[in-house]
């Protein structure tokens, strides 16, 4: 079902008229964004059980609130739609005090229905995620969703706030008992340069 819904949503986004002011961007415009903030472990799911929220108690993820940041570069393919890539980094700590990290490298698609001085960027990303904890690591899939509000105080420079979701499914085809999914809720500030 998801494989059907995603293309439909993209088609709707492409064909949708802007709800904001007239288009600021042209095809070929570029945008560079740096984000940094905090990440909250939202859920940990493994073997049919889901733990929620930061903390070390029963039913919690056993992760602390951590930090998250990303660099992204995108080029507009239509006045409202930009594609590009994003390199992220997220960290938090387990109960042992050891750090647990995600390094998602994703293809990023951003739709900006309201643009100009104030913008509302809505982004989805899909790619790989290098996860590590203690001496263990794995490259798996990674997906991001982000919505933000940003203000451009010059023609080129803007700042914003963002939230969304980082989803990290850790998949083992040969040992399904090792499968698990972590989701994180980021809250970030961003600095954007557009050209």
């Amino acid at each position: 079902m998801k494989r059907i819904l995603i293309p439909i949503a993209l088609l709707l986004m492409l064909s949708m008229p802007s709800v904001g002011a007239s288009a600021y961007y042209d095809a070929g415009s570029q945008i560079f964004t740096i984000t940094a903030g905090v990440s909250t472990p939202l859920t940990y799911t493994s073997n049919g059980e889901t733990m929620v929220g930061p903390g070390s108690g029963d039913g919690q993820t056993h992760h602390t609130i951590g930090g998250i940041g990303a660099l992204s570069y995108q080029i507009f393919v239509t006045p409202y739609l930009a594609i590009g890539g994003e390199l992220g980094y997220q960290f938090d700590f387990s109960r042992s005090g050891d750090v647990c990290t995600n390094v998602p490298i994703t293809a990023k698609l951003t739709y900006i229905p309201l643009q100009g001085d104030f913008e509302i960027p809505i982004s989805v990303g899909l790619g790989l995620d290098y996860i590590s904890y203690d001496s263990y690591s794995k490259i798996t899939l990674g997906a991001t969703f982000e919505i933000g509000l940003r203000y451009f105080f010059t023609d080129s420079w803007g700042v914003g706030i963002n939230t969304g979701l980082l989803v990290a499914p850790e998949i083992y085809f040969d040992r399904p008992s090792k499968n698990s999914v972590m989701t994180y809720l980021p809250a970030t500030l961003s600095v954007t340069y557009r050209h």
Partner: peptide, 12 residues
Amino acid sequence: GVFQMAHNATKK
């Protein structure tokens, strides 16, 4: 798995 390791880790 990696996340299982992290989840099952215990306090030092």
